[in-house]
Each structure stands twice: as structure tokens, then as C-alpha cells.
């Protein structure tokens, strides 16, 4: 299944936030939207979810135009994972996840045994089945994020749109959530996430769109599009993309005083030559 936007303008009323956006996202991959705060990511997401109508252009789910689908039909195909938050009432984890079944219920019905099974298996899939009876509002930020992801899974949507899933999480929880996101894509879900941390995109993304000031600067596979030049342009600063000895990449602000003209490749090569050890890195002068 494909979720695509063609020549989309998004915004509220007369205020246009982003324009000229064409994207295509497929199930089974992690599509990342990377950009600084205020670049229009959230508005674009809300448009992709059908929460705000597009100002121009259209969003399609395969061949169906999103604005022709009912709220319920959209909810069955696209799930939304907001940033973790505290609801006003002390729901248990299972109750929160069960709400993910709403789009599969009749207007007047309540979740039954089958829905409860879906909820529990979604929790199991994220290895948090033991939390089912716990008070959701007492969980840590990382656990809450996982519960919200489980809620999306319980709804059996083809796409899961996540608004900065790692925002506000501590280091350990960030990587835990990123791991689970990778596993979701492997299980065939299309994950669309926004982030303002290039390292997270490098860690989990298959494809990426780099956004700045309401436009997409570049999009493509994470390997190609995430080079130092593009990232530098997005953030308006020099950055280095460094390849680690095991092939992973990280992004860092360029070292002060000595901006690397080749985007850090030489640094990375040198580091690899030295076996990637800290000592080796220190011992060389570039």
C-alpha cells in the first residue's frame, strides 16, 4: 500500500505553512521527515492524517483520495502516534491500547474479547505485555511511547505516523523506541516519522525527506540524501557525517575552526584506517 502526496500545500486557512510537497511512502519501510523546528513537519503530518484539509494538491492512499474517505476508514489504514503525554484520567495501559480498536467497532459498540486479544498481542509484540494492568500515567516516557505505538498496532493500520517519537525521552529509551520502530517496518508496517535528530534518521530510516522553511530540500534514500551538504543546508550550519567502522553513520556539528570540505569523509576514512579506536582518532591530525 502507498501513502502519497502530490504537489501538496498545507496550512491553516489563509496561512500556508508548506508548499510543493510530493512524497510517496510505502508499507514496510521507515520514511523520515527531518527538519528544524517550525519547518512545517507537524502541519504536514496533520494533513497526511486527514486532520486538516490540504490547501492545494491531494493526499492519496493507493488510489483513494484521503478527503473522500470517512474518519473511520482513514483510521483503519493510518494510525497516529502522538508525542507521549499524560491523559486527564488514569487509564490502564490495556484501556489505552484498546482505544486503538475504536475504528473497528460499530458506533454504538464497545470492544469485545477479540479486540482485547488484539490489544494484548500488540503489547506483546512490543515486549510490554507485563504492563497491561499498569496505570498508564505512571509509566516512564519511553514506556508510554511504546504503549502509544502498541495502540497504533492494535488498530491494524497499514501506516503508522509518529510525531517525533523520541522527543523528550532519555538516551536509553530513545534507542529502545528506535529499535521497535525498525522491527515494525520489518513486520510490514509503513512507518512515517518526524524527527529533528539526524542521528535517529540515520539509525532507522530507509528513506528521508529533508525539510526547511516549508519546502522539501531533498528526498531520497537515507544513504544518499543524508550527506553533509544537504544536512548543512537544512540546519544552516556546517555538519560532518561520519561513517563508523561498522558502516553506521553519525552526524555531528562540524569541528570549530576546521570545517571539513569533503563533508567529513576524510575524517571517517582516517578513523576507519585507525581501527575506529578513540586513541587512533586522537593521534591523527587533519
Amino acid at each position: 500500500m502507498h501513502l502519497s502526496a502530490s504537489d501538496l500545500s498545507v496550512g491553516y486557512g489563509r496561512r500556508q505553512v508548506a508548499a510543493g510537497i510530493s512524497l510517496s511512502m510505502a508499507t514496510g519501510e521507515v520514511f523520515c521527515l527531518l527538519g528544524p523546528n517550525g519547518c512545517g513537519k507537524t502541519t504536514l503530518f496533520r494533513t497526511l492524517l486527514g486532520l486538516v484539509p490540504p490547501l492545494a494538491g491531494s493526499v492519496r492512499l493507493d488510489d483513494d483520495r484521503l478527503d473522500r474517505l470517512s474518519r473511520r476508514e482513514i483510521a483503519r489504514r493510518i494510525a497516529y502516534v502522538p508525542q507521549s503525554h499524560t491523559p486527564a484520567f488514569a487509564y490502564s495501559v490495556e484501556e489505552v491500547v484498546l482505544m486503538g480498536r475504536t475504528a473497528h467497532l460499530g458506533i454504538f459498540s464497545r470492544p469485545g474479547r477479540a479486540d482485547r486479544r488484539h490489544a494484548l498481542s500488540a503489547l506483546e509484540q512490543l515486549d510490554i505485555g507485563h504492563l497491561a494492568a499498569t496505570d498508564y500515567s505512571l509509566l516512564s516516557g519511553g514506556q508510554r511511547q511504546l504503549v502509544l505505538i502498541a495502540r497504533a498496532l492494535a488498530g491494524e493500520a497499514a501506516f503508522v505516523i509518529m510525531d517525533e517519537p523520541t522527543a523528550g525521552l532519555d538516551y536509553g529509551n530513545q534507542s529502545l523506541v528506535l529499535d521497535r520502530i525498525r522491527a515494525l517496518a520489518a513486520a510490514g508496517v509503513g512507518v512515517v516519522l518526524s524527527s529533528h535528530d539526524p542521528d535517529h534518521v540515520l539509525a532507522v530510516g530507509d528513506r528521508v525527506a529533508l525539510m526547511r522553511d516549508g519546502a522539501i530540500l531533498r528526498q531520497g534514500s537515507v544513504d544518499e540524501a543524508m550527506d553533509a551538504g544537504s544536512l548543512g543546508a537544512v540546519y544552516g550550519m556546517a555538519v560532518d557525517v561520519i561513517v563508523l567502522p561498522d558502516g553506521r553513520k553519525v552526524c555531528l556539528p562540524a569541528a570549530a575552526g576546521g570545517r571539513l570540505r569533503d563533508g567529513g569523509n576524510r575524517l571517517a576514512e582516517g578513523w576507519r584506517e585507525a581501527g575506529g579506536s578513540k586513541e587512533g582518532f586522537k593521534g591523527r591530525v587533519y
Binding site: 492524517l49 474518519r71 473511520r72 483510521a75 483503519r76 497516529y80 503525554h85 482505544m99 486503538g100
Partner: peptide, 10 residues
């Protein structure tokens, strides 16, 4: 839940 969330849940 929040407006956006409830809406996205259908």
C-alpha cells in the same frame, strides 16, 4: 484523549 488523537482513532 486529545482532539487530534481521538480524530485519528476514528
Amino acid at each position: 484523549l486529545d482532539d487530534d488523537e481521538a480524530q485519528a482513532l476514528g
